[in-house]
């Protein structure tokens, strides 16, 4: 038994050395490859922003927006980006769905594997209180990406502007889009996510500390979508606008701006034609 244990422990030490070496190398690569942005304006948010604001229309802007991005990930991203970047303006998505509790589930539902792939180099999961997290899947993803082999690229959390096809129009399935954001599987409505509000406050504080002008932008929504947003949610949204405005945050709410059906990809995303138009309008009126 002694020989067996000795051999087994030696082999485990051999494995741990290999994994540890890779971890160290990859940690170095993470630091080396943390994003350095040479633009003045940073555009962040979820798919609403990703599809709606074209950074090339600005004199100096970059979009890192990604679909299904809750504020806690935006906050981690922002911190990571600011290590090596000098940004003076942050445009952050501020639609109704950004505040919904549905985003609290992304580390537990079908999105979790995609989320873990993005966030493992920047995640501070211990700061998330009360959220359900698939720890096993997260651990496995991090282990695979950090311990198996050296990987020069670990940055999967930087999105981009993605103009959506203007020849397709998916307005009929509007109820599915609304319920995805605001309805639980049992038919009741999601409330406002305290985690999202908490991390939005953290972003506000971070921007104030780092002298970044924060602009919250509510992107255009089709009336079919707007009309079906639960009323309690609209009230909470309005209250939050007041609260953040009092804190000195600039908010441009375009959710009720008039866009035609041909400007939408679906009821809550502009297509590329709508995005160009919206970006131009945003710049014309506010920059």
């Amino acid at each position: 038994m002694k020989s067996f244990l000795k051999d087994t422990l030696l082999f485990i030490a051999f494995l741990l050395t290999y994994f540890g070496l890779n971890y160290g190398i990859n940690q170095y690569f993470i630091q080396l490859s943390s994003p350095q942005i040479e633009k003045r304006i940073l555009i962040m948010g979820d798919s609403h922003i990703e599809a709606s604001i074209d950074p090339t229309a600005f004199p100096s802007a970059i979009s890192v927006a990604q679909s299904v991005e809750p504020y806690f990930i935006s906050y981690w991203k922002l911190k990571s980006i600011m290590h090596k970047s000098k940004i003076d303006t942050l445009i952050l998505g501020f639609s109704y769905n950004n505040l919904a509790e549905s985003y609290d589930d992304v580390l537990h539902n079908l999105w979790c594997l995609e989320m873990f792939k993005r966030i493992y180099p920047i995640a501070e999961l211990n700061t998330l209180k009360g959220l359900k997290i698939k720890w096993k899947e997260y651990g496995l993803r991090k282990f695979k990406n950090m311990c198996i082999a050296p990987r020069p690229n670990h940055v999967f959390y930087m999105g981009d502007f993605s103009g959506l096809d203007s020849t397709k129009n998916n307005l009929d399935a509007y109820l599915a889009n609304v319920s995805r954001h605001f309805s639980k599987s049992d038919g009741t409505n999601f409330g406002v996510s305290s985690t999202s509000v908490e991390f939005l406050n953290k972003i506000v504080a971070f921007c104030q500390t780092n002298n970044i002008k924060l602009i919250l932008v509510g992107t255009p929504l089709h009336e079919k979508y707007r009309e079906n947003i639960p009323s309690n949610f609209e009230e909470s949204y309005a209250e939050l606008i007041n609260t953040f405005q009092k804190k000195g945050v600039t908010i441009y709410n375009y959710s009720e701006a008039v866009f035609t059906d041909t400007d939408f990809f679906d009821v809550d995303h502009l297509n590329i034609k709508g995005a160009k138009q919206f970006t131009a309008s945003l710049i014309r009126n506010n920059f």
């Binding site: 082999f11 051999f14 494995l15 290999y18 282990f143 695979k144 198996i148 082999a149």
Partner: peptide, 14 residues
């Protein structure tokens, strides 16, 4: 020999 076992373990994980 251990390197071969390590290779198998890595393929299992990866």
């Amino acid at each position: 020999r251990w390197t071969f076992y390590l290779f198998l373990i890595l393929t299992v994980v990866q």
